[in-house]
Design a protein around this nucleic acid. Structure first.
Lengths: 229, 229, 229, 229
DNA sequence: AATGAATGAGGATTCATTCAT
DNA sequence: GATGAATGAATCCTCATTCAT
């Protein structure tokens, strides 16, 4: 058929695009109202399709949310892998992780909302849902810490498993505060990233022979008087 | 009557006790199912009262949740204040904060569930609800950081506001992991507290003249081989 | 006992008074909100008693309403009988009926509300309730019409049964309009009574030999320019 | 499709029909049980639809009742206007009004029930509901009376506003009695109409020169011995 | 495939009535 | 008798999901 001429925008492609429109609509709606308070008909309207159409692409409302978790997390995960691929130094990779995390947030705050609020809910209340992609994502952080230990840069008494969650929690909470606050105003996301990473790294790094100051971690000073919120 | 003699267990006291029973029941039910999926009749059954009785003590289902936030947070806040009162050293107070936070969690995991999952939801979806008690709670942490800076112990380039949220986030995320995991098994809450506080403190403390090692922060070594989860 | 000394205000008398207080409170509450929207606890509060006390005096909520119908109607009926006893002329008795009807209304508008609105409901929806007192009340009107016919004053082709309901309906509707309108303002209840009675009587009376004007019915002219509402 | 050919039974038409079915069902149910005692599910069953379907057509239960008031009264009002259009003589128009009123009643007793009982309730208890259609309906009666006065046929000392309500009340009360009584049995609605109109007209008409008998009003005698109830 | 009208299960809340004190 | 806390049956309404067109 004509639509198959270039082999790309056939039936399947049209289908994929409509599905994507629904997912994007759902992200906006869930971010606005929360999963529980969002109606399927809201998503349908936002996506410009009929209610019933949703069910041609998803099993049910919960499936939409899980799809968001899975597919969007996969994209984010791919992006993170790409970003880390270019960096060899394990310490720098930790910093890149943090910057990447906040960068995603800034680009798609609605998606960030959904992840932060609903994923947390879902971890407990969707029976058996295991956010494996999230674990993969965080495993990259844990690896970087381990690599740092193997390279003798990070203290041996640091537990990579615990610190992974600790750093993630710190980033996540700051993310929530950024999202919740009048977004762009008083909260400087870059400063937050720098601060937290600096403190974590200083806290994790092995003392070096040449003094208490630890290279990269302390390099980019900022004026602490310029309060952030 | 005898029960009125000491003026304690009168009618008002009985009322207070029943109200408390409902609150405690609600905490268990919300922790189990989440706020949205909890039925008022579940709470009533758990509390051993009739459905209608709930409404003699609370306006509606949401009011129960907000009451939990307010009253339980007030108790926790009082406890934190008492714990911090005994400590002068600002650095030690930060460590006490972390230990106290986890201690509450261990004592009342169901309450912790509700706070971590539902409060986070509520911050966004109960229009206008402002968890002021939580802010008071965290303000004590921010104060300790500022005091540490004033005493010349904590670096000046640290932003107390950002670090407050960062440390809280780290603790909170580890708390969730502890709660979510098969609770008592593989996750050592004490080690987690020690690790995170150590890293944060080391990262925040000013370098001392006598070398890169910072006294208290690094004092309680543990074997990192004993993995935590 | 001391309270029985005068034989009047003993236990029984106190009981009677409290019961009366409840009835009066119920009239006010029903008039305000309607029977359906009135809560038993509203009546209790209005009467200054506890909810449970109501049930020491009445079977249930419906019983209060029926009691109002029965007892208050009995009082009104007694009053009407007394008023009619003093009048021999059947035509005049019809006029007295109308004046008495409106007089009651003016004196106790709340009671009138309850009768007009709730009795009408109840005639249909309280299974088997037969407002016999109301029928007795109206029977006095029907008798007067019959007496007028027997005396040759009222036309033979008038059906007393139908005219009874017709006149009652006319009075009742005007009563509702009076009650519903901003009560004392624009609606002159006396004029309404005069108008309706005049028209009905003129319409029912036999033509007399001395001309088209019918004695009493046309005696109290009023300026029709002074509109009533 | 064939059904769309004439543009009548399209989707919109189907919608309109289902809506009408619900309205008609509600009239029957309200007439049977009263508004308060009627369950939405009763209406749904009577209409042969699911409970939820009701809410695709009406906001809530009260909205159904108000719709009945508005739409059915509009129909009745149109019918009255048509009936009066054919009559010039103001006196005759009053008689037509009465006959039309009873005719509607006879045709749709359930609707009459709802109007007589629930509208009366509603006039007081649905805050702010103003039965404007009813006022329009009655305004036609008032106009006829005024026209009769302007034509010198009706006495000047008659207040059209009061008589409008009076006549309406008389008709309405007789209507209720007819509806309440075992309907077709003992109560002759036609006789009632004739009687009341005759009396009212005789009472309102100006005396003519040629004697006390007033043409049309007294023309259709009936045997008063044939009691009506 | 798309539509959107229809379905009906589910649950928060009210309030008449009871009963222990 | 009086109280008022407790009960629990009853019902309106929402909304995820289905299915005829």
């Amino acid at each position: 058929m004509a639509s198959d001429a270039n082999g790309v925008s056939g039936r399947a492609e049209a289908r994929r695009q409509k599905r994507e429109r629904i997912v994007e609509a759902a992200i906006r709606v869930f971010a606005r109202n929360g999963f529980g308070a969002s109606r399927v008909s809201d998503i349908a309207r936002e996506a410009g399709v009929a209610d019933g159409t949703i069910y041609l692409y998803f099993q049910n409302k919960e499936d939409i949310l899980l799809t968001i978790f899975e597919e969007k997390m996969a994209e984010v995960l791919d992006g993170l892998r790409a970003a880390l691929d270019e960096v060899d130094d394990p310490i720098e990779r930790i910093a890149v992780f943090a910057r990447y995390h906040f960068e995603q947030l800034r680009r798609n705050p609605a998606l960030a909302q959904v992840f932060q609020v609903e994923l947390r809910q879902s971890r407990r209340f969707f029976r058996g849902y295991r956010p494996e992609r999230l674990w993969d994502y965080l495993a990259l952080l844990e690896s970087a810490i381990r690599d740092g230990q193997a390279a003798g840069r990070i203290r041996e008494d640091v537990d990579p498993f615990l610190l992974k969650w600790g750093l993630f929690g710190a980033l996540d909470e700051l993310a929530i505060q950024w999202v919740v606050s009048r977004k762009r105003d008083r909260f400087d996301l870059d400063r937050a990233a720098v601060q937290v990473v600096e403190v974590f790294l200083r806290g994790m790094l092995r003392p070096t022979l040449d003094g208490p100051e630890h290279g990269s971690a302390s390099s980019n000073h900022q004026d602490p008087k310029r309060r952030s919120a």
